[in-house]
Amino acid sequence: MYSTTATDASNFVSTFNTSFYFIAGISLLLLIGLTVIMLYFVFRYNNKKNKVAVQNEGNTRLEIIWTVIPILLAIAMFYYGWAGWKPMNKAPKDALKITSVARMWSFSFQYENGKQSPDLVIPVNTPVKLNLVSLDVIHSIFIPAFRVKSDMVPGREKMMWFLPQTVGDFDLYCSEYCGLRHSYMNATVKVLSNEDYTSWYADSSKVITATEESVPGAEGLKIMINQGCNACHSSDGTKIVGPSYMNLYGEKQVVIREGKEVTVTVDDEYIKRAINDPNSEIVKGYPKGLMQSYKATLSDDDISKIIEYMKSLNDK
């Protein structure tokens, strides 16, 4: 998991450290120095020891000194920050390109061969360029161990790059507040050796999450884990943000369609509508506008698999 001691988890750790410790070091010295001087004055010139104050209206030379020196220090601090940031702005040409899609409240990583994963799986010592896409509100992708972060703004092209330098697992957080389950919007960055990555990448199944193959409807479950449906829907009857899948298929459901309450039976057609056009019918008691359409990402075949999985969750 995440540790700050992996000093070279990415190429940006050392540039961060330079600017952080440079400023923190100077600041600490000044803080201690000024505090000691201040406390010394308070003891030395307290009115028991110093009955009469010596008036002094100021000293222009001193003022100039303590204006100019801080300005020089500030410019040096600015310089290190800028020098450390500059390379972040320009990704190497040969970087591995991965599209990172954020939605409330999950990340999904899409590879050039069509592979998709809820975790960011990457090879060590290869520059990685993430193309950042948000489907709903602003999110922010933050990998503390790599010292990188970038907002993911809907409707705006953005990218972020880094060079992973250590094999291991690292935490990835959403760091721009995005609603109810913001603090659960996490993923893991898995940095693999080149061989492991190549075999992972070659595995043509779209999904990588290890769920038991034997579970009925397992393929549908994998698709949903991948798409982040489980951030809002549970399989065990608990209400997270949307209704649970448990005992859903074949039941009657009250929905609001064009402002009127209607009762429908949950069948294939209904579920397809619920996934492709979620806001046309809103389940009674749930908020509108939270679930986005999956028309662009899920095929009819995927949806049938999801339905298979839902059916497996009925008690009968």
Partner: peptide, 10 residues
């Protein structure tokens, strides 16, 4: 520290 670009990103 926060005003410094490289540190701010983290």
């Amino acid at each position: 520290i926060l005003g410094s670009l490289a540190a701010n990103v983290h």
